[in-house]
Write a protein that binds this DNA or RNA. Sequence first.
DNA 1: CTGATCTACAACCATTTGGTTGTAGATTAT
DNA 2: ATAATCTACAACCAAATGGTTGTAGATCAG
Lengths: 108, 108
Amino acid sequence: MTNEEVDRIFRALADATRRDIVRRTLTSESSVSDLARDYDMSFAAVQKHVATLEAAGLVTKYPRGRERMVRGNPENLRQVQQLLQHFEDLWRSRVSRLDALLAEDPTP
Amino acid sequence: MTNEEVDRIFRALADATRRDIVRRTLTSESSVSDLARDYDMSFAAVQKHVATLEAAGLVTKYPRGRERMVRGNPENLRQVQQLLQHFEDLWRSRVSRLDALLAEDPTP
DNA sequence: CTGATCTACAACCATTTGGTTGTAGATTAT
DNA sequence: ATAATCTACAACCAAATGGTTGTAGATCAG
């Protein structure tokens, strides 16, 4: 994953409406207009949110008749989780180095 | 965590420079000017990035003489990880429901 | 004391973001 | 065939973002 991709994913998740769309479409897929009905904004606004999520690879869309079905895609969520886990690991390694330092024989 | 807090955290992570600052300060703390030296932008720009991270609770700052030391804070990273794990769980529950459906006796 | 360093913060600017309305193309229903 | 529904996309707007420079307050070094 390039920095730009990671940027896009985090930015896409930095909005409560978009996080809710991801949550919903991970559970069960919905059409764009199904989604739009549940938010207090225009259809076009919801459509843009879905497009942002699609560009970030967090949802996929496929046509069913005149509707576009939106389905959550867990793949990039896992990638992000892995990145955060890496951070967590860095922190733990720092802590254990500090622990080692404290455990050293204090009389060299 | 409120939606606004989550927004702030994801938004703070949606920038490669800020992610790098988090990574570095989780490993070993640095002063703001230490950090600023390593990025191709003004001191003030780096200072703003650190402020954004601090507002998101991803780093903490404390004074050491005339310097401000920046230290990565793993707490909110874990919160975000938990949120992503929740998404992952939702997806898995959907998959197992589909599995259950497929496993149903096809002749009722 | 004086000068250098580190930080904070304001003011400014270009770009992006998140919303709107309006128009037009496809598909479905009557 | 006509009307209704769903989507895509453009144009526009206010606010936020990410950068800049400049100024001023603390702290440290000589």
